[in-house]
């Protein structure tokens, strides 16, 4: 009997080892009934994209607290496009200044969550905006 699940990857690009937030989110996605792949810290965008395709995820959630999001986040979207996998939704979170939001949306990110965003609101956003791929 068919049993479709949302598959999510939580990834930490760049040289930033602060992954408490990413872990909390991974756990929270698990509790929401998703299948969650966590890549661990210090990933290059290339590694993240290769893993996302091998794992056939519906969503990649990027976490960055180092300030390098202006390069790393758009690079992930761009590489997904290059691999014909731009049907995978990309969202981001971490320490992201307000003035960078537009630049990230323009680059193709679908949502940004910063400190203060409730876990419920993130799960709700995913449930509304991400459907398991056909």
């Amino acid at each position: 009997m068919e049993d479709k699940k949302i598959r999510v990857m939580v990834a930490k690009p760049g040289l930033d080892g602060h992954d408490r937030g990413a872990r909390v989110l991974a756990r929270c996605f698990r509790d929401a009934g998703f299948e969650v792949i966590y890549t661990g810290c210090h990933q290059t965008p290339e590694q993240i994209v290769a893993a996302a395709i091998q794992e056939d995820v519906d969503l990649v959630g990027l976490s960055c607290l180092s300030g390098a999001h202006r390069y790393l986040f758009p690079r992930v979207v761009e590489l997904l496009k290059q691999h014909g996998a731009d049907d995978i939704t990309v969202i981001g979170g971490g320490i992201i200044p307000d003035q960078d939001f537009q630049m990230l949306y323009d680059a193709g990110l679908k949502a940004i969550f910063t400190p203060g965003a409730s876990l419920d609101s993130i799960v709700e956003w995913v449930k509304t905006n991400v459907k398991p791929m056909p």
Partner: peptide, 14 residues
């Protein structure tokens, strides 16, 4: 309980 899963083996193979 929830049907969710945390798949973490991959971390070691990234």
């Amino acid at each position: 309980f929830t049907g969710g899963a945390l798949l973490g083996d991959r971390i070691r193979m990234q």
